[in-house]
Write a protein that binds this DNA or RNA. Structure first.
Length: 845
RNA sequence: GCCCUCGUGGUGAAAUUGGUAGACACAAAGGACUUAAAAUCCUUGCCGCUUGCGGAGUGCCAGUUCGAGUCUGGCCGAGGGCACCA
């Protein structure tokens, strides 16, 4: 039998689609739109299996929506600024630009091998001046709106990369890329005022119905809204310091407070800069880092001051003031009051410094003797030991009442606090978008005039090994405008800024005057389905949501609010791991399989240790190169397999056995195609078209439902079943027309999965018209004869074949005549019969 | 510690949303074809009784129900997120 030649056939279709510009989209208000977007890749050099999975999932959806008659926008671009280019350029002594451009061209041709339905005319690259020009415009717009500002701040300093790291780029106290221990350093930084929108970003999470709950919860926790109160503590007289303000969510525990604790960065620390002991303490605190886990386990330590604070609720209660390592300056007010009985951290601290532990919340109303030992009590209960607060129900009643009282006596104020911090966007890097700011002789920042945009990144062919590259570009840095001397900002923007609006640019990729057309974005946006890895659950998605808010701030031209209506987070691609006898990682290419055991290829006497399946990574050598795989098995086989084994949201295990099975299956489908043509040629007179029609309609229904629910793995199973059914059913002497009509529908619904193959088969049927998604007929799907499950006392005892819609009595007549079933019933009395039509009957004896 | 998600064969997984548990696939074992191998096809898959049938069975223990993988409560385990957050 003729083999299916995937190589020539896939190439042929890809060329044809390209030539016809089949996936090119244009604004068309007469059609309903569908914006399908996958997270765009960083051009690291080669595509990996994660890309293959991501873009295949998106392509299935885009092709499906297109068949359904939607005007589909399915673009692709490159997140092309970033550190790897800079690092690679340093290593190989070439320009980041050249490195990036070569990678893009290579990865683009690799992506094309997958046969994706992408509108390549809309391709964008964030490192091109055509793109970042508009980003600079936006920066200036936000600057005018007061959403950009500069402040001096402690930053996580990576001493190897010479750059600032975001908190989330610090892993276990080390830089996420360099692995170097992070230092603290004070720098002047540009910030986006994301906290201005904290409430809105939190609130409108509720409107995102098509987002995974998991992601919404992560964002909610990240924003971290908490309700509480600012409390004022007076300091005993005789000091230059008169009062200290604390933020607390538990003002109702004030009577249990036994100390005040300040961050070492608290403004009051300026009074202690001459105290050698304090400086040493501060140094010790800084050594432990800022937010790392090492610090979580660190001992709670404090530095006792001579200050004494007065409890605002009772002038007679006086407590000591400490600096403590567990208080952070950038949350709340950098000061807390410690209530050891009801906060574990405070309890640990109190025990170390022998401070009072007075419980003020008792779990049971009557238990006035409640004591706290080693574990702080944080649960609900009733206030006691608290003068006029006694008896209040905690926390609901007690917190509100206490705040009311504090406000009345002018010692407190209701306050909502957010964990979210402003977004630091300055990066001391070359390969990023230049910040369109200049400084005058007095170091005052000024906007670059709009007509001077873009601020072009100067070409640097040889990067120095350390420092901020732009700072060394003297000619570029110094600039004269209207006869006045200025120097440029030499930091570049965080690359998360680049990806915070690229989805808008795709709507108007060629527009020169501005980043987008309002007409375009108001038609295409929001993105109907966004698909990508869950690792972007917080930052990228939150920043993009912020950016939309910021652009729409004081601007009513946007007809949508949230950028991503639907979000789907796909799982990772995993592979078994291998190690040789000496414990070195071994790549799958270096292994042969003999009698079910795995040996080293070059030395097949050496058994290889097979480890657990883990997400593909270069360090574990368990990666598979998509390009080679596509060349060996074809794009359709790869698409079929990457979809087949696991639901898209879960991890999938790549295996050579799996891809081989998909490859063989495509050949079987090709044989089925040949059988169809044989039968069509025979031109039978007899026809029992109902049977095949019913099958086809059922198949369409299943595929459609599974497409709608992202159950792409089940579609592959449906396809396997369809093959098994059809290869036998073709012997039923169907008329040519019946065969043709049904086969066309079946092929049409599988084009999203295996587009080259399905289109080739359609062509062999001489079908050249534009395809559309076939409707199924629900009536046709119902079988007339059905199998009904018979249970006796809830246990399955048999199946009865009957006509659809049979009533209870008629069904029972069949049951008592059934040889097998009647013996269970015998003469016994029947207590009850439960009959669910067409499904099940349960007989209770 | 807090929050979230998930526990189904040797493996990846299905299950009309409370109604035949294990579809479909991988791996394994046995068989057919073949001189042989590859390829292809078929069968098997827990426990009893040599067929057929019966029993157990969706992490564990209870509960609701005619009926629970699915709902409720408790426990155990795995994964992910967050964290001196006041």
């Amino acid at each position: 039998m003729e083999r299916y030649n995937f190589k020539s056939i896939e190439e042929k279709w890809q060329k044809l689609w390209d030539k016809k510009k089949l996936f090119q989209t244009n604004l068309d208000k007469t059609k309903k739109k569908f914006y399908c977007l996958e997270m765009f890749p960083y051009p690291s050099g080669k595509i990996h299996m994660g890309h293959v999975r991501n873009y295949t999932i998106g392509d299935v959806l885009a092709r499906y929506k297109s068949l359904q008659g939607y005007n589909v926008l399915h673009p692709m671009g490159w997140d092309s600024f970033g550190m790897p280019a800079e690092n690679a350029a340093r290593q190989n002594n070439l320009s980041p630009k050249k490195w990036t451009e070569e990678n893009i061209s290579n990865m683009k041709s690799q992506l094309k091998l997958l046969g994706l339905s992408i509108d390549w005319d809309r391709e964008i690259s964030t490192c091109s001046p055509e793109y970042y020009k508009h980003q600079q415009e936006f920066f200036l717009e936000l600057y005018d709106k007061g959403l950009v500002y500069r402040k001096e701040q402690y930053v996580n300093w990576d001493p190897v990369d010479n750059t600032v790291l975001a908190n989330e780029q610090v892993i276990d106290g080390k830089g996420w890329r360099s692995g170097a221990p992070v230092e603290r350093k004070k720098l002047n930084q540009w910030f986006f005022n994301i906290t201005h929108f904290a409430e809105e970003l939190l609130e409108s999470l509720n409107s995102l119905e098509e987002w995974p709950n998991k992601v919404k919860i992560m964002q909610k926790n990240w924003i971290g809204k908490s309700f509480g109160c600012e409390v004022k503590f007076k300091i005993e007289t005789g000091n230059p310091i008169e009062e200290i303000k604390c933020f607390t969510t538990r003002p109702d525990t004030l009577f249990g407070s036994s100390f005040l604790a300040l961050s070492v960065d608290h403004p009051l620390s300026k009074h202690f800069v001459n105290d050698q002991n304090f400086l040493e303490f501060k140094k010790k605190c800084n050594e432990t880092g800022t937010t790392e886990e090492s610090l979580a386990n660190a001992e709670k330590i404090g530095f006792k001051t001579e200050l004494t604070a007065i409890n605002p609720l009772d002038q007679n209660i006086k407590i000591p003031v400490y600096f403590a390592n567990f208080v952070l300056m950038d949350y709340g007010l950098g000061a807390v009051f410690g209530c050891p009985a009801h906060d574990q951290r405070d309890l640990d601290f109190a025990k170390k410094y022998k401070l009072q532990v007075l419980p003020v919340v008792t779990p049971e109303k009557d238990n006035q003797n409640f004591q706290v030992q080693d574990e702080a009590y944080t649960g609900p209960g009733y206030i006691f030991n608290s003068s006029f607060l006694n008896g209040l129900q905690c926390p609901d009643e007690s917190i509100i009442k206490t705040i009311e009282h504090l406000e009345k006596i002018n010692f407190g104020e209701k306050k909502i606090n957010f964990r979210l911090k402003d977004w630091g966007i300055s990066r001391q890097r070359y390969w990023g978008c230049p910040i369109p700011i200049i400084y005058d002789e007095n170091n005052n920042p000024k906007k670059i005039p709009k007509n001077m945009l873009p601020v072009m990144l100067p070409d640097i062919n040889k990067l120095k090994t350390s420092g901020n590259p732009l700072d060394n570009e003297i000619e570029w840095k110094n600039i004269i405008i209207d006869g006045k001397k200025y120097y440029r900002e030499t930091d570049t923007l965080d690359t998360f800024v680049d990806s915070s609006w690229y989805f808008l640019r795709f709507c108007s990729p060629k527009k020169k005057e501005y980043g987008f057309n309002y007409e375009d974005i108001n038609y295409w946006m929001p993105v109907d389905q966004y698909i990508g890895g869950v690792e972007h659950a917080i930052l990228h998605l939150l920043y993009s949501r912020f950016f939309m808010n910021a652009l729409a701030h004081k601007n009513n031209k946007f007809k949508f609010k949230e950028p991503f209506k639907g979000l789907f987070t796909q799982g990772m691609v995993c592979h078994e791991t291998y190690k040789d006898q000496s414990g070195n990682w071994v790549s799958p290419d270096e292994i042969v399989n003999i009698d079910g055991k795995k040996y080293l290829k070059n030395d097949n006497s050496h058994l290889v240790k097979v480890g657990p399946s883990e997400s593909m990574s270069k360090s574990k050598k368990n990666t598979i190169d998509p390009e080679n795989i596509i060349k060996d098995f074809g794009a359709d086989s790869v698409r079929l397999f990457i979809l087949s084994d696991s639901p898209p949201e879960k991890d999938v295990q790549w295996s050579i056995e799996g891809i081989s099975a998909s490859f063989k299956f495509i050949q079987k489908l090709w044989n089925l195609n040949i059988r169809f043509h044989e039968e069509i040629k025979k031109n039978h007179d007899e026809d029992s078209s109902d049977k095949l029609n019913r099958f086809t309609n059922k198949f369409i229904k299943k595929v459609e439902e599974n497409l709608n629910s992202f159950s792409y793995n089940v579609i592959v199973a449906n396809l396997y079943e369809a093959y098994a059914y059809l290869i036998k059913d073709l012997n039923n002497n169907y008329k040519s027309n019946t065969l043709k009509e049904n086969y066309k529908k079946i092929l049409t619904v599988i084009t999203p999965i295996i587009p080259h193959f399905a289109n080739e088969c359609l062509e062999t049927l001489s079908i050249n018209e534009t395809l559309s998604w076939p409707d199924y007929d629900s009536k046709l799907i119902e079988e007339n004869e059905i199998a009904i499950v018979i249970q006796i006392n809830g246990k399955k005892r048999g199946l009865v074949k009957a006509k659809r819609g049979i009533n209870e009595n008629n069904l029972y007549d069949i049951i008592i005549k059934d040889e097998k079933l009647k013996k269970y019933i015998k003469e016994q009395k029947i207590k009850k019969k439960i009959y669910i039509e067409n499904r099940i009957m349960n007989i209770i004896i």
